[in-house]
Simulated assay, not measured.
Amino acid sequence: MVWLQYTATRSQRAATACFFLTGVALILAAARLSYANVEPQRAKAAERRRVLEDFIRRKRGLEREDPPKP
C-alpha cells in the first residue's frame, strides 16, 4: 500500500519546506523568550517565599516585629 500515489510538485515541496522552517523558527523564538524570563520569575518566587516565611514566623511569635525599647 502506498501512502501517496503521486509525487509532490516542486512548488508543493517548497511550500512544505517553508511551513516547516517557519514552525521551527517560531518554536525557537518562543524558547528564547521563555528562557529570557526565567531568572526574573525565580527572583520573584524567592522574594514571595521570604515574605511568607517572615509572616508565618511573626504569626507564631517566633520573631517580634518591634524590639523592646530600653
Rank of each mutant, 00 (worst) to 15 (best):
Q5A: 10
L33V: 05
G23Y: 00
C18F: 06
V38I: 15
R13P: 02
L28A: 14
V24T: 11
T7S: 09
R49P: 00
A45G: 07
Q12N: 02
A30Y: 01
N37M: 09
C18I: 09
A25K: 02
L33P: 01
V51F: 03
V38T: 13
S11F: 07
N37K: 11
E39P: 02
Y6A: 13
F19K: 15
E39W: 05
R50K: 13
V38N: 03
A8H: 07
E39T: 09
L21R: 03
F19M: 15
A14S: 04
Q41R: 14
I27R: 03
A17P: 02
R32P: 00
P40T: 00
L52Q: 15
S11L: 11
A45P: 00
A29Q: 06
Q41L: 10
R49A: 15
K44C: 06
A8W: 09
S11H: 11
L28G: 03
A46C: 04
F19T: 15
L33E: 12
Q5N: 09
I27M: 06
C18S: 08
T22N: 07
V51H: 03
L4P: 02
R42C: 06
V38E: 09
I27H: 03
C18A: 12
Q41N: 13
A36G: 06
L26R: 12
A36I: 10
L4W: 08
F20W: 11
L33I: 07
Q12F: 04
G23H: 00
V51E: 09
R42P: 00
S34T: 14
E39Y: 04
A31G: 04
T22V: 13
S34V: 03
K44Q: 15
R10A: 12
A29D: 01
A17I: 07
R50H: 12
A17R: 08
A30D: 03
T9D: 01
R32S: 08
T16Q: 10
A8N: 10
E47R: 14
A43R: 14
F20M: 09
P40N: 01
R13Q: 15
A8D: 11
F19C: 14
N37F: 04
R49I: 05
V24W: 01
T22Y: 01
V38P: 00
T9A: 03
R50D: 13
Q12P: 00
G23I: 01
L21I: 08
R13V: 12
A14I: 02
A25W: 00
V38L: 04
I27Q: 06
L52N: 14
L52G: 05
A43M: 11
Y35I: 07
A14K: 06
A14W: 02
A43D: 08
C18W: 05
R32W: 13
A43G: 05
A14H: 01
S34A: 10
A8M: 12
A17E: 14
Q41Y: 01
R49Y: 04
L4N: 12
V38S: 02
L21Q: 08
V38W: 00
